[in-house]
Simulated assay, not measured.
Amino acid sequence: MPATGDTAPDFTAPLANGDVDAITLSDRLDEEAPIVLAFFPAAFTGVCTDEMCTFQDRLSAFKDVDATVYGVSRDSPFTLNEFRDQNDLEFGLISDFNGEIIGDYDVSMDFADLGVYGVAKRSVFVVDSDGEITYSWVSDDPGVEPEYAEVEAAVDDAA
């Protein structure tokens, strides 16, 4: 699993932003860093909805330091656009439908009792303009949300 000080694994994936575009992390670093990658297991579930809505509620703190927030999940980009619409999310959601990003960041988890495999552990990575991870948090408990003030402080430090 990449940790603080490591180079963030690069990726290209569909971006649900009201439309469906492609996003390549390395192409966004100059203009959008620091970048917050907030991995979550699944759209339209209780804790995931709470988490993404909390990022939305705190979005101004990230914008104040020119940081960019992206949610990342295995959901399709079409599902993620509907999730954005229903929750009035102003930031983009990255569709890792094939699980490649989740694998590269080593944050895969299973809900074997439900027959669900390879979804994202709830985790947050902050990536600076050099592509370095300056903050990482990974939870083995899908019911635990990140410490948002800690993420904001990490973004302030990376800005």
Results as ranks from 00 to 15, higher is better:
D113K: 08
S136I: 07
G143Y: 03
D130Y: 04
R122E: 01
V151W: 03
V116P: 03
V127H: 01
L114H: 09
V126E: 00
I133V: 15
Y117N: 14
E145F: 04
I133L: 10
Y117G: 11
R122M: 04
G131F: 04
A120P: 03
V144Q: 15
D113M: 13
V119E: 07
K121A: 01
S139C: 10
E132F: 01
E147Q: 12
S136Y: 08
A120T: 03
D141C: 13
E132A: 07
F125Q: 00
D140V: 05
R122D: 01
S139A: 14
P142H: 06
V119S: 05
S129L: 08
E147I: 09
V144L: 14
S136L: 06
V127Y: 01
E132L: 07
S129D: 15
E145N: 10
V126G: 00
P146Y: 09
V119N: 05
V116N: 08
S136G: 09
V124L: 01
K121G: 00
D130L: 06
Y148W: 12
V116Y: 09
S123V: 04
V116H: 08
Y135C: 01
V127A: 03
D128L: 09
K121M: 03
A154Q: 07
V151Y: 05
V127C: 06
V116E: 13
A153D: 15
D113S: 12
V155Q: 11
D130C: 04
S139V: 08
S129T: 12
E145R: 11
A120C: 06
K121Q: 11
G118W: 04
E152P: 03
V116W: 07
L114I: 05
T134S: 14
G118S: 14
V155S: 09
V151C: 11
D130H: 05
G131Y: 03
L114Q: 15
F125Y: 15
V124A: 01
S123Y: 02
I133C: 08
D141M: 11
S139M: 11
Y117C: 07
S139L: 14
G115R: 13
V144M: 14
T134M: 11
E147A: 14
Y117K: 12
V144D: 10
S139D: 13
V119W: 07
Y135T: 01
F125S: 00
D128C: 09
W137H: 06
D113R: 10
A120R: 00
V124C: 02
A153F: 05
E145H: 04
A154E: 06
A154N: 11
G118D: 12
D113Y: 11
Y117T: 12
G143P: 00
A149T: 12
G118N: 09
G143C: 01
A153S: 15
E152W: 02
E147K: 10
A154I: 12
E145V: 07
P142T: 03
V144G: 06
